[in-house]
Design a binder for these strands. Sequence first.
DNA 1: TAGATTGTTAATCGATTAACAATC
DNA 2: TAGATTGTTAATCGATTAACAATC
Lengths: 215, 215
Amino acid sequence: MAMEGFKSAPLPTIRRIPVYLRVLEEMQEEGQEWASATDVATRLDLKPIQVRKDMAFTGLAGVPKRGFKVDELISAIRDFLGWDKPTDAFLVGAGALGSALMGFAGFKDHGLNIVAAFDTASEKLGTTIHGKEILDLTRFKELAQRMHIEMGIITAPAVSAQRIADLMVEAGIKGIWNFSPVPIKVPDDVAVQREDLSVGLAVLSVKLSSLSPEK
Amino acid sequence: MAMEGFKSAPLPTIRRIPVYLRVLEEMQEEGQEWASATDVATRLDLKPIQVRKDMAFTGLAGVPKRGFKVDELISAIRDFLGWDKPTDAFLVGAGALGSALMGFAGFKDHGLNIVAAFDTASEKLGTTIHGKEILDLTRFKELAQRMHIEMGIITAPAVSAQRIADLMVEAGIKGIWNFSPVPIKVPDDVAVQREDLSVGLAVLSVKLSSLSPEK
DNA sequence: TAGATTGTTAATCGATTAACAATC
DNA sequence: TAGATTGTTAATCGATTAACAATC
């Protein structure tokens, strides 16, 4: 039935939506029943029209003069993001960053379940981080296929990132969260999200130098 | 002398430039003397015109038919980003993520020098991470002012993020790299860069669910 | 009811892409 | 020289913002 009119949300919208979710959860804790786009916008220093347009992508209809029921909007956003159903992930690279990610309690609320970590350093193998075992990378493919793992997280050094990405693709993984600083190449049917710290640092550096005109 | 024509680079350009830098350093290691926008674009699957436009913001003039001297372009980019001169930073929140950041060797090449970490947990105080001392948060302001620290890094839990940001502003810090999941409010003359993992995860989640139409 | 907020259509703004003359 | 690449001006595209009728 006429799907051709459907337009997926623009990237900037998708990036703002988890921020709205956080604000709404805050309002929920405060015991608020209703939230308007204006309320959310005020808390985030955004324009109401932008929040309103963004929220339309969740598919939830608001009520004129009142806004949205907080509970319903939270559910609609979680559904929109796919955070309502759990996704199992394998992490590769059990270094400091990998360990930190494995310890994030917040991922559970985002449907992300890091099942195990993989590494090549023999002294790490068999030990656990936050209750999850560190396994030999050679077992990755077999286990990922058997457990139907959908998501892979790369927290390994730059030099091995592409090799690990290839392994993940081979193992049938459909989404890669890449914390290594190099862009990886994957087939079109695999989604990649780069999380390159140097990008954020670059933005901050430029902002900083434009604030304090050079001496 | 007519500065009014100067236009600062758009945010998407700033975000791509550190990626170009990495590619150029790769080419430098390979011993290449010249790099054209086309060369860089090819390695990153981007359009040459976009790379060319972006590079114009570094202020370096290219040579028709040959491109840019790799060494000069690297210098121009590092200068553009302010990565050629070191910036001292204080980090607050010596947990797993804070420790991971303190261990990143790569920050040195980006002009970032994390001088010390601060926390409130008494058992951590006095210990060191990667050779840097963990100090009591009560000493933050005094030390930041005395050492003229420009940048602050927040790797503390959401609940304390705003309080820490306020402290940083009070201590004269001009740029805040915020790894906590809450947006913080600061005066206009302070730059903030948010590094919220849930944003990246949201983008990946949506990509993933649009790739694999729901069962 | 009156007024605030929704959903939608139109206008604006800014970034990307195209076109092309200049040039080593 | 011929041809590839630069720098720049113009066209296109997409996101943001404005305007406004519908509505509880």
